[in-house]
């Protein structure tokens, strides 16, 4: 089992402190700016297009289990359903993980309620397909073709099925927006989707879409944490280039610290 070294613990606490500080100040009413992210702005366009065409939307929360990636995807799902509910559009959500399924159901029900349209909630539109990768992919592609979806949203962690889903969506003529933290699938989604949200933009999605002060503060905290990490890398590179890491090694040994405590 992995445990934090003293250095790692300090870095983790400092980064967490930066994020929490920014969340608290944002809650206190600090005005925060967030730049335009084209992929997220395209969500409105995709929902509008589906409404004009009178066809449903499809949202895939990916293949990852119940973790931060999927929670973020479900957060985006809530926003998309709220938008769709305003325009009387239908959102189909094929789910791969059984633990994610009841939460997706709850998010959908809550989103329809928030828009004052609880009658639009259809339990059959939140579908658990299979926990097998390619069975899920086949099932989702089948839904795309049968329901003739007008827009596809792929948010969450994906594996090799990402391209199968995105290419099948392209074949049915759907506008496609994808967002994933799975770095290996990003090139495929960029090639096959109209808009792709990559890297930290994926985690900026809920803040961008909701403009909730807590989420905006957290986003600013993330940016400051990255600045802190960059500074750390910069000084690490300087120390290594000057041969000073040896000195830190020596101090570590003299103080009887375990390997990895400082360097």
């Amino acid at each position: 089992m992995e445990h934090a070294t003293p250095f790692m613990a300090v870095v983790l606490l400092v980064l967490s402190g930066i994020i929490l500080y920014n969340i608290l100040t944002a809650r206190g009413g600090r005005d925060l700016f967030i730049r335009r992210i084209p992929g997220l702005a395209a969500i409105d366009e995709a929902v509008g297009r589906a409404t004009e065409m009178g066809r449903p939307l499809l949202f895939s929360p990916g293949l990852f289990g119940l973790g931060v990636e999927t929670l973020q995807a479900l957060s985006v799902l809530g926003h998309i359903i709220r938008l769709a509910a305003r325009y009387n559009s239908r959102v189909i959500v094929p789910v791969c993980d059984a633990q994610v399924y009841p939460i997706a159901e709850e998010v959908a029900r809550e989103a329809y309620n928030q828009e004052g349209r609880p009658e639009l909630y259809n339990a059959d539109d939140i579908r658990f397909l299979s926990d097998r990768q390619f069975a899920y992919a086949s099932g989702t592609v089948g839904i795309m073709n049968r329901e003739k979806v007008a827009a596809n949203f792929f948010f969450g962690g994906f594996f090799a099925e990402a391209l199968i889903l995105a290419e099948a969506g392209r074949e049915v003529g759907a506008i496609q927006v994808a967002g994933t933290p799975s770095t290996t699938q990003i090139p495929f989604l960029i090639a096959a989707c109209d808009y792709t949200i990559i890297g930290e933009e994926y985690y900026a999605a809920s803040a961008y879409l909701t403009r909730d002060p807590v989420l905006l503060g957290s986003l600013v905290g993330q940016d400051w944490s990255k600045v802190a990490l960059l500074l750390l890398i910069f000084f690490g590179a300087i120390l290594a280039s000057l041969g000073l890491l040896t000195v830190l090694h020596w101090i570590q040994i003299q103080l009887g610290m375990p390997a990895g405590a400082l360097v």
Partner: peptide, 14 residues
Amino acid sequence: LLFGIAMGELAIAL
């Protein structure tokens, strides 16, 4: 990309 993702995950986990 991974640095950005890691910070995002830390923030959402918190």
